[in-house]
Design a protein around this nucleic acid. Structure first.
Lengths: 160, 160
DNA sequence: AACCATTCTGTAATCATTATAAATTAGGTA
DNA sequence: TACCTAATTTATAATGATTACAGAATGGTT
């Protein structure tokens, strides 16, 4: 994450106000690498500012994500848990617009961690996820629904 | 997924009864590759058996998952959405026991799809997730908490 | 046909998250 | 410095996915 000062000026640039709540949330996040949930951020920040509202934490995390200063850990469960009838190890190709998932049944060589990278973890499995836009969603009419994902319009079909 | 007959005998083997509800859910799932949610299974199955309960669908999907005949699409949001302070593309190493996430900041060569594999998708990004057990969770006392993941006990430390 | 443990069902509870609307306040202006 | 107003915070209610529960129904064996 960027430095506090950089983050604060970004907020100002975008017309957002610097409140004590946002400040304390940012101060917590700046050096945090634990991938916390909103609840965990709330718990930690509450110890410094006991009257902060849970809602403010949720809102601030969402705003920072919208600004691109924070990223929700991606998952394929936007509309609830998905079930896979293939129980063999495999990979996924996911349409970020309509959430269609296609299975990729092959191995990717070189997709493994060195002992240093594994940092003591006993590795059980691994899985790749490819994010993209499926053919049906590549029409101009569909582009509007792909909020949160930057797409080069020139790369898409465009016959009005 | 296995054939209906195979699935039905598996259920019997494990002492589960063959009910019309389970039968119709299995019949829907057998040739399904769309990674449906419980709600989507319910909608489809309702058209064949209008009085089936949503709860039964949820329960059956959970039971099939417990039996290993179905797999929930894995995600790292078991305790709610996680936030990542690193907004650069990177990969994840996830402890299936305590849910700790460590970032892996490097590229894996060869982790890309051929045009045929991409099946028309415009690929935007990709991400690898490594599932494992972190050093803290490899102690015998921690093993009990790792339900749902098969671990070879001999591979773990074991001094009482 | 009878039995009973299992299963199904509807409802309520739970958990994470978002919507809402009223109270407060950041930050520019007189 | 005091004021003004739109942005923000807050508490509460609403939502959506999922699970808990408890009573009614039933699969499969005797």
């Amino acid at each position: 994450m960027k430095s506090i000062d950089t983050l604060l000026s970004r907020l100002r640039q975008r017309g957002l106000r610097i409140t004590p709540q946002r400040r304390v949330i940012l101060e917590f996040l700046v050096n945090e690498e634990s991938h916390p949930t909103a609840e965990q951020v709330y718990q930690r920040v509450s110890s410094l500012m006991p009257d902060i509202s849970r809602t403010t934490v949720y809102n601030t995390l969402r705003e920072l994500s919208d600004l691109g200063e924070l990223a929700p850990v991606q998952d394929l469960s936007q509309d609830g848990r998905r079930y896979d009838t293939s129980t063999e190890p495999h990979h996924h190709l996911y349409c970020v617009a309509c959430h269609t998932i296609i299975d990729i049944h092959r191995d990717f060589e070189g997709m493994s961690l060195s002992p240093e990278e594994a940092s003591g973890y006993q590795i059980l499995s691994h899985q790749a996820t490819f994010y993209g836009i499926c053919p049906d969603c590549q029409s101009p009419a569909s582009v509007a629904t792909q909020a949160g994902w930057t797409v080069d319009p020139d790369a898409l079909n465009s016959e009005t």
